[in-house]
Each structure stands twice: as C-alpha cells, then as structure tokens.
Lab assay of single mutants.
Amino acid sequence: DVEPGKFYKGVVTRIEKYGAFINLNEQVRGLLRPRDMISLRLENLNVGDEIIVQAIDVRPEKREIDFKYIP
C-alpha cells in the first residue's frame, strides 16, 4: 500500500504536458505534475528513467496517486 509522505522508487512510463506518469510496480501508477517538481523540469525526464518520488495524495477509491519530486 502506498502511504502519503513516504518515498518510493518509480519508473517514468509516459510524459504529457500536464505531468509524468510514474509506475511503482505493475499495479501502482501515479502522476508527477510540473508544480510538484523541485529542481527538476518535465523536459529533463525521459521514459524509462528511474526516480525517487514522494506520495503526497493517495485516493485508493479512484486509484489515483499524486507524487512530488524532492532531490
């Protein structure tokens, strides 16, 4: 289970104008929005990159997770 405030290693699987989709595993995916990136820009991410993200909002009923990147 993903818990708000905890850090997780994930893989960038898709990049859109509104953010990057990060997979923690095959069943768990969330969104990293540009506003939640500190010292990292969306255009510097590539599909396949491994990054450490912090879960900031977890909505299991909608199967949605918002992430934050903190270097």
Rank of each mutant, 00 (worst) to 15 (best):
G5H: 07
M37R: 01
Q54W: 11
K6Q: 11
N46Y: 14
G19S: 02
R63M: 13
P60C: 07
S39M: 13
G48W: 08
L24Y: 02
R63L: 13
V58C: 04
L40A: 08
I51W: 01
V47Q: 05
R59P: 03
E26R: 15
I65H: 04
R63C: 10
D36R: 04
E16M: 14
V53I: 08
N23I: 07
L31V: 06
V53S: 00
P34Y: 08
T13G: 07
I51V: 09
L42F: 09
I52R: 09
I51R: 00
P60A: 13
G30N: 01
V2L: 09
E50T: 15
K17H: 14
F21R: 04
I51G: 00
K62Y: 09
Y69E: 07
V11L: 11
L42C: 03
I15P: 00
K62I: 10
N44E: 15
I65A: 06
G48C: 06
D1N: 14
E26A: 15
E64M: 12
T13W: 07
E26I: 13
D66Q: 08
L24H: 01
P71S: 10
E64I: 11
L45Y: 02
L45S: 01
A20E: 00
Q54E: 07
I51K: 00
M37F: 03
E64T: 11
D36C: 07
P4Q: 12
V58M: 06
V28F: 08
E43N: 11
I51A: 00
M37N: 05
R29M: 12
Q27H: 15
S39T: 12
K68E: 05
T13V: 11
N46G: 12
L24W: 03
D36M: 07
A20F: 03
L45I: 11
E50P: 12
K62F: 10
E61Y: 07
K17A: 13
G19D: 01
Q54I: 13
Y69K: 02
N25W: 12
K9A: 10
L42V: 07
P60T: 10
E64S: 08
Q54F: 13
E64D: 06
M37S: 05
E43S: 13
E61D: 14
N44F: 11
R14Y: 07
K9I: 12
L40D: 04
I51E: 00
V11W: 15
I56M: 14
Q54M: 15
R33Y: 02
D1G: 15
K62E: 10
R33E: 02
E50Q: 14
D49E: 08
D66C: 06
K62V: 12
G10V: 05
Y69T: 03
S39V: 10
K6N: 10
I65L: 09
R33S: 04
I70H: 10
G48K: 04
R14S: 11
V11F: 11
I22Y: 01
F67E: 01
R14H: 09
E43Y: 10
T13H: 06
G5N: 09
N46I: 12
K17E: 12
V11A: 05
L45M: 09
L40V: 08
E3V: 15
E16H: 10
I38R: 11
K6T: 08
K68Q: 11
R29S: 13
E61H: 13
R63G: 15
V28I: 14
Q27N: 15
Y69D: 03
I51F: 04
R59K: 07
Y8M: 02
S39F: 11
E16Y: 12
V11E: 06
I52N: 05
D66M: 09
L24C: 04
R29K: 11
G10W: 15
V58Q: 05
R33A: 04
I22G: 00
I15E: 00
K68W: 04
R59A: 04
R35Y: 08
V58N: 06
D36N: 14
I70L: 12
E16K: 10
Y8L: 03
L40K: 08
E61T: 11
V58K: 05
P4V: 15
V58D: 02
N44V: 09
M37L: 06
P71V: 07
A55P: 05
I15H: 01
G30H: 02
A20Y: 03
P34T: 10
E16R: 10
D49W: 05
E43W: 11
V53T: 01
E26C: 11
S39H: 14
V47K: 05
V12D: 00
K6C: 10
Q27F: 15
Y8W: 02
F21N: 02
S39C: 13
I52S: 06
G48V: 00
K17P: 15
I70W: 13
V2E: 02
R35H: 10
V11M: 11
G48E: 03
Y8N: 00
M37A: 06
P60N: 10
I15C: 03
V28N: 07
R35E: 10
D36Y: 08
F7W: 13
L31N: 01
Y8G: 00
E61M: 10
N44I: 08
A20W: 03
V12S: 00
I38L: 12
V28Q: 10
R29C: 09
V2R: 02
E50Y: 15
R33M: 04
L40T: 07
